[in-house]
Amino acid sequence: KWTITVQGEEAIKWAIKVAEARNLDYTVHIDGDQAHITIE
């Protein structure tokens, strides 16, 4: 299990796209213009 933090709307969209493309189980916690994405 690991967490990445991305900043900015484009980076958030990209990170989610990558997680979905790899069929990963993930949760997103949005904090202002940052998102913390935890991959199970």
Rank of each mutant, 00 (worst) to 15 (best):
G32F: 05
T5R: 05
E10K: 10
K17L: 12
K17G: 11
A35R: 05
T5I: 13
I16T: 04
W14G: 03
K17S: 14
I16P: 00
I4F: 13
A15D: 01
V28R: 02
N23A: 09
W2K: 03
A15Q: 03
Q34L: 14
A19M: 15
A11G: 07
E9H: 11
A21I: 11
K13S: 07
I4P: 00
D33I: 08
D31M: 11
E40H: 15
V6W: 03
I37V: 06
H36L: 12
I30N: 04
T5C: 13
G32Q: 04
G8K: 02
A21F: 10
I37R: 00
K1E: 04
T38L: 06
V6H: 01
V18R: 06
N23I: 05
A15V: 14
T38I: 13
T5A: 05
H36E: 08
A11Q: 10
V6Q: 01
I16V: 07
T3V: 13
K1F: 09
I12R: 05
E20D: 08
G32R: 04
L24M: 06
T38E: 06
A19W: 05
I30H: 07
E9F: 12
A11P: 02
R22I: 14
A15N: 01
E9I: 13
H36R: 12
A35E: 01
V6C: 11
V6P: 00
E9G: 07
A11C: 15
I12G: 01
W2R: 04
D33F: 08
Y26K: 00
E20I: 13
H36F: 13
T3H: 07
T38A: 05
E10V: 09
V18Q: 13
L24Q: 05
K1S: 11
I37K: 00
T5K: 05
G8S: 05
I16F: 04
G8D: 03
T3E: 05
H36D: 03
V6D: 00
G8A: 03
H36N: 05
G8H: 02
Y26W: 07
E40R: 14
V28I: 14
T3K: 08
D31G: 03
I30W: 13
G8P: 01
R22L: 15
T3G: 03
T38W: 06
Q34R: 13
I39Q: 02
E40T: 14
V18T: 08
A11E: 06
G8N: 03
T3A: 05
I39R: 01
T38V: 12
E40V: 14
H36V: 14
H29K: 12
K13N: 07
W2Q: 02
T27H: 08
A35K: 04
L24C: 13
D31R: 08
H36Y: 14
G8Y: 04
E20N: 09
G32Y: 03
E40A: 12
T3R: 09
N23T: 04
I30K: 06
A21M: 12
W2N: 02
H29D: 08
W14C: 14
A21P: 00
D25S: 15
A11R: 11
V18H: 09
E40S: 14
N23W: 07
E9K: 10
L24I: 06
A35I: 11
A15R: 00
I30D: 03
V18M: 14
I39F: 14
V28Y: 05
D33G: 08
A15L: 12
I4G: 01
A35D: 01
V6T: 02
E40D: 11
N23Q: 11
V28K: 02
W14P: 00
I4C: 13
N23V: 03
I37H: 00
E10Q: 10
A19Q: 02
T5Q: 06
V6F: 06
D25H: 15
Y26V: 05
A15Y: 13
G32L: 04
I12E: 01
I39L: 09
T27N: 06
T27L: 05
V28S: 02
D33P: 06
Q7S: 12
V18K: 05
W2V: 05
T5W: 10
W2E: 01
A19G: 02
I30G: 03
I16H: 01
E20F: 06
T3N: 04
I39S: 02
A35H: 04
T27A: 06
Q7R: 13
V18F: 15
I12A: 02
I30V: 09
G32P: 02
H29G: 03
I37Q: 00
H29A: 09
G32D: 04
Q7D: 04
G32C: 07
D31V: 13
D25I: 15
N23Y: 07
E10L: 11
I30L: 11
G32N: 05
N23G: 15
V18N: 07
H29R: 14
W14L: 08
T38C: 06
D25W: 14
I37L: 07
V28W: 06
K1T: 11
L24P: 03
W2F: 09
I16N: 01
E10I: 10
I16R: 03
Y26S: 01
T27F: 08
R22E: 10
K1D: 04
A19V: 14
Q34V: 15
K13W: 11
D31H: 10
Q7G: 04
E10P: 06
G8I: 10
A19K: 02
T38H: 08
V18P: 00
T5V: 12
T27G: 03
I16D: 00
I16Y: 03
E40I: 15
I12M: 08
K1W: 11
E9C: 14
I39T: 02
G8R: 03
D33C: 13
E10C: 15
H36W: 14
I37N: 00
N23C: 14
I39G: 02
H29Y: 13
A19Y: 07
E9M: 12
T3F: 10
E40M: 14
Q34H: 12
A19D: 01
K13P: 01
Q34E: 09
W14Q: 06
L24T: 03
E9Q: 11
K1M: 09
T5P: 02
E20L: 10
D33M: 09
I4R: 02
W2S: 02
A19R: 01
V28L: 11
D33N: 11
I12N: 01
D31Y: 10
K17V: 07
K1H: 08
R22A: 14
V6A: 04
I4L: 10
E10A: 12
R22D: 06
W2A: 02
A15M: 11
V6I: 10
T38F: 06
E9T: 11
D25Y: 14
Q34W: 15
G8V: 06
T5H: 09
A35P: 03
R22K: 12
I4T: 02
T3M: 10
Y26L: 04
H36S: 10
I4M: 07
K17R: 12
T27C: 09
G8E: 02
I39V: 07
T27R: 08
H29N: 08
Q34S: 11
A21R: 07
A15T: 05
I39P: 00
I39H: 02
I12P: 00
N23F: 08
W14N: 06
E10S: 09
E10R: 12
E10H: 08
V18A: 10
V28Q: 02
V6S: 01
D31W: 09
T27S: 10
H29T: 13
A21N: 10
E9Y: 11
D31A: 08
W2I: 06
E20C: 14
Y26D: 00
R22C: 15
E40F: 15
H29F: 13
Y26R: 00
I37F: 14
I4Y: 10
Q7M: 13
L24E: 03
V28T: 02
Q7H: 12
I30E: 03
W14I: 05
D25A: 15
Y26P: 00
E20Y: 05
Q7V: 13
V28G: 00
K13L: 11
T3W: 08
A21H: 07
L24N: 03
A35Q: 03
V18I: 13
I4W: 13
I37S: 01
V18E: 13
T5D: 03
E40Q: 13
A19P: 00
I12K: 04
T5S: 07
V6R: 01
E20M: 11
G32T: 03
T27W: 10
I12V: 05
Q34I: 15
W2Y: 10
A11T: 05
T38Q: 06
D31S: 09
E40K: 13
T27V: 09
Y26N: 00
G8L: 05
W2M: 05
D31I: 13
I30F: 13
A11K: 08
A15F: 15
